[in-house]
Amino acid sequence: MMHSVPKTMTAVLLTGHGGLEKLVYSRDVPVPAPAAGEVLIKVTACGMNNTDVWVREGAYGTEDDPSAVSTWRRHGNTLTFPRIQGTDTVGHIVAVGEGVDRARTGERVMVDFSIYNRDDDSLADIDYMGHGRDGGYAEYMALPAENAHVVATDLTDVELATFCCAYLTGERMLERARLAAGETVLVTGASGGVGSAIVQLARARGAVPIAVARPGKEAAMLEIGAEAVVTRGQGDLTEGVEAASGGRPIDVVADLVGGPLFNDLLKILRPEGRYT
């Protein structure tokens, strides 16, 4: 069935750095036209990242002044206002640009939000949709066709919209740490988006995840695959991890908290273990 694309849409516009007053809900934003090699999707769900908040606040600082107003991409900034934020986007293709197979119309897709400015594997010049170009806080979004990945799953669009940023971060952490099947990984901040992703991604690798989480999250951690849970702030962390692991060495620490936990985590890590 062909989808009738309107000329205007509702969207949330970021109009500058600052508080929530810089987000403007508008009903008459022009619907983008897909350029050559692009598709237009009707957005059905879009997650919110802390990156969206920090970019709005200009909270990334600089090397010389951590309190300076600065956005995510400090070298060669691509953020202009107004900007439609929103990275973790799911939707259906409703139109295609020149050079894209019209048969793609109607596909249910998940958006890879990365803007790859180089042809190699380096991430030194990477950008993202919602920063360098408009994202998914709108009814429609145009993007490169290769960034629209078909999904076939029973998960809802809302569930899928929690995946991309958190799971991408977790996957990169475990790749860097070279987590292998049979190894034990300790995950701090395990009840958050990235932490819960790491627990599941570790299981998918055949590794054994032990979660460190705040009180009240223990059952949820076990449900998604944690072997055991250490409740943060209750007793000595080193002793808690040793009990939870049954004395198994901790091969990898995937740390999403840092701060005062850092020294204990280094002590918990086995000799020649990996910290990410």
Rank of each mutant, 00 (worst) to 15 (best):
G136Y: 00
A180Q: 15
G193C: 03
A152H: 15
G182W: 06
R205P: 14
G192I: 02
A207N: 10
G233T: 07
E159Y: 10
V229T: 04
E223T: 13
V194N: 00
R176T: 15
A213T: 07
A181V: 10
M221Y: 06
V194T: 00
E218I: 10
V241E: 11
V199I: 11
A220M: 13
D157N: 09
S196G: 09
A197P: 00
G216H: 07
C165Y: 10
M221A: 05
A177P: 03
E175I: 04
D154L: 14
P144H: 12
A207W: 04
A161R: 02
A207R: 02
P215K: 11
M173E: 06
T231R: 12
G225V: 10
A243S: 09
L143T: 13
A202V: 13
E242N: 11
R203N: 07
G182D: 08
I224P: 04
E242S: 13
E139H: 03
Y140E: 06
Y140R: 01
M221G: 05
V212Y: 01
V150H: 08
P215H: 08
V185Q: 01
P209M: 00
T153C: 03
G135E: 04
V230W: 04
A180V: 13
A180D: 15
G193V: 02
E175C: 08
G240L: 13
